[in-house]
Simulated scan of single mutants.
Amino acid sequence: MIERKHTLSRRSFIIRGAAAGGAALLGGCDQLSQSPSFRDMLDRAEGLTEWAQSLVLSQRSMAREYAESDISVYFKPNGSTRVADPEYIRASQNGFVDWKLRISGLVERPGEFSLDELRRLPSRTQITRHDCVEGWSAIGKWKGAQLGPILQSVGLKPDARFIVFHCADKLSFFSNYYESIDLIDAFHAQTILAYEMNGAALPVPHGAPLRLRVERQLGYKHAKYIQHIEVVASYSDIGDGRGSYWADRGYEWYAGI
């Protein structure tokens, strides 16, 4: 017990210190947000936050898992809840039997996986808490294919560094949703491509037919409606170059809990 209290105290000290630095920066955002030097400083601050979290989070540490009795009666869908893309609509009306997940980029064997093929791959079931940056949380049961074995099956090239998720939904007129994670999170045991929620097929508002569950990060990292996975050396060419839809709009790319 003493050791755990010490660990939590150290974690709180580091993360609160990083948060305090961020708060000091944000206080002048209105006046400085257009300054290139200020943007560079924010980028460095984000890197410090990620570094601080990496000090207290083991690469193998697991997000807490819960009992069936803890599952939330209502689980609010995060982000978008529908997709207007005609190809997606046709696939959903057919139960996604003809839907395919495409994997490309820095892999030895680019290819496609049907939903049935994904269901036959090594899977994991976990009951975890979804924490939204808006301040709400909910507990759900997820089942899906572990991302690590999928990446091993297609063969990562030596310069592969990040996994980018291209999605079917749009939160703005010009851009489909996109997200990325590094290889540490990609190969974590709890990182899955979920096709079931609470014992049933993943509902459309929650990202059917496939969504990312990266349980050690905040909800906006859990990309929904995944249609294409791209393996890259850098995410500088994705969107505005910050690695995800929300990071390009001021959120942190690394959203560790």
Rank of each mutant, 00 (worst) to 15 (best):
I2F: 07
R4A: 05
R4P: 01
R10T: 08
R11I: 11
S12N: 13
F13T: 13
I15P: 00
A20D: 09
G21E: 02
G21D: 04
A24R: 11
A24K: 02
L26R: 12
D30T: 04
S33C: 14
Q34I: 03
L42Q: 06
L42D: 00
E46T: 00
L48R: 08
L48M: 09
T49V: 15
T49C: 00
Q53K: 05
L55S: 00
V56M: 01
S58A: 14
R64E: 13
E65T: 15
D70H: 15
I71D: 11
S72F: 07
F75A: 14
T81S: 08
R82D: 07
E87M: 10
E87R: 13
E87S: 15
Y88T: 12
Y88F: 15
Y88V: 08
A91M: 13
Q93F: 04
N94L: 12
F96P: 07
K100D: 12
L101W: 06
L101A: 00
R102I: 14
R102Q: 14
S104M: 03
G105A: 10
G105K: 06
L106P: 03
R109S: 14
L115W: 06
L118A: 13
R119L: 01
R120Y: 02
L121S: 12
S123E: 12
R124K: 15
Q126E: 13
I127A: 01
T128G: 07
T128W: 13
T128P: 00
H130I: 12
D131T: 04
D131K: 01
C132W: 05
C132A: 15
W136H: 12
W136I: 02
W136F: 14
I139D: 06
G140A: 15
W142Y: 13
W142N: 07
A145L: 11
A145R: 05
L147R: 00
G148M: 01
I150M: 13
I150C: 03
I150W: 10
L151D: 06
Q152S: 12
S153W: 01
V154D: 05
V154Y: 10
L156V: 08
D159M: 14
F162Q: 15
H166E: 13
C167L: 05
D169S: 06
L171F: 06
S175R: 14
N176A: 11
Y178V: 09
Y178I: 13
Y178F: 15
S180T: 02
S180N: 05
D185H: 15
F187K: 06
A189Q: 14
Q190M: 00
I192W: 01
L193H: 09
A194W: 05
Y195L: 02
E196M: 00
A200C: 00
L202A: 05
P203N: 00
H206M: 11
H206Q: 12
L210N: 03
L210K: 08
R211V: 03
L212G: 07
R213C: 11
R213W: 03
V214N: 02
V214K: 02
L218V: 08
K221I: 03
H222I: 01
A223R: 04
Y225A: 09
Y225S: 10
Y225W: 10
Q227N: 07
I229C: 09
V231G: 09
V232E: 08
G239P: 06
G239R: 11
D240F: 10
R242H: 11
G243K: 04
S244V: 06
S244K: 09
D248L: 03
R249C: 01
Y251V: 02
W253N: 04
Y254V: 03
Y254G: 11
G256Q: 07
I257G: 03
